[in-house]
Amino acid sequence: MGNKIIKKENLAKEVVRMVVEAPEIAAKRKPGQFIILRVNENGERIPLTISDADPGAGTITLIFQVVGKTTMLLRDVPEGGEISDLAGPLGNPTHVDKYGVVCAIGGGVGTAVIYPIAKALKEAGNQLISIIGSRNKDLLILTKEMGQISDRLLVCTDDGSYQIHGFVTDVLKHLLEEGVHIDIVYAIGPLPMMRAVCEVTRAKGIKTIVSLNPIMIDGTGMCGGCRVGVGGESKFTCVHGPEFDGHQVDFDLLAKRLRVYPSEEEKARSSYQPKPK
């Protein structure tokens, strides 16, 4: 018995939003938590953040970028079709508190991860400044949704094809130079982006939380594959995270650990043949 795909749509090129039937997870999940899924019997287990949930309808929303064989397989499950396994909610929820001014930064598909966290922080009474960015206009996601929850939304593209021309870090620097006060930053996106944001905020002494996405298998603390370096210690992302103090994270180590299986990933990707419809 798998979990049914209720709705599927493209948010951007190779970025898919899926609404999946999972009543128990929908009832239980809190912002910042993730699930682990396996598309079919021969599939691998991958973690994906829960972008949203509708406990009434018994569904959760997943947003993912198609990068490897597993996300290709997932993309190709039709509406009404099933994925064989879905486990969650996993990881610790975001520590939602009233900080004052929160700056939520989402890069690329990381915007899908920051969205539920930003929403919860806004609902907790924080003032929310959001910065979202991507390589170009076609890859931007959730601009409308982020706009609805933010007191101020700044959108940027690396190539200048939409709104501000530049990186999210440029926008953040600019805000700080303008004298905008920020109490805490949540930054989620590609690893170089999170690292760059942390460098900017470290200099200013602004606490910065990042959400990490290492390779994972069970997601329950059993395998230790998702260990990351935080403050000089090894932490298991699945049970100690996925959110950590960005100023303590060893991003170099994480970058290397994400590149354990480059040739296997390429082999799986290039040999993937979608089933004829």
Binding site: E44, K69, T70, C223, K267
Partner: peptide, 19 residues
């Protein structure tokens, strides 16, 4: 776990890799 549960020994028939 990679080898037994995920059958990485049968990669690429199974999707989970192992070194």
């Amino acid at each position: 776990t990679r080898s037994n549960l995920m059958k990485a020994y049968a990669f690429p028939d199974y999707d989970t890799p192992i070194i």
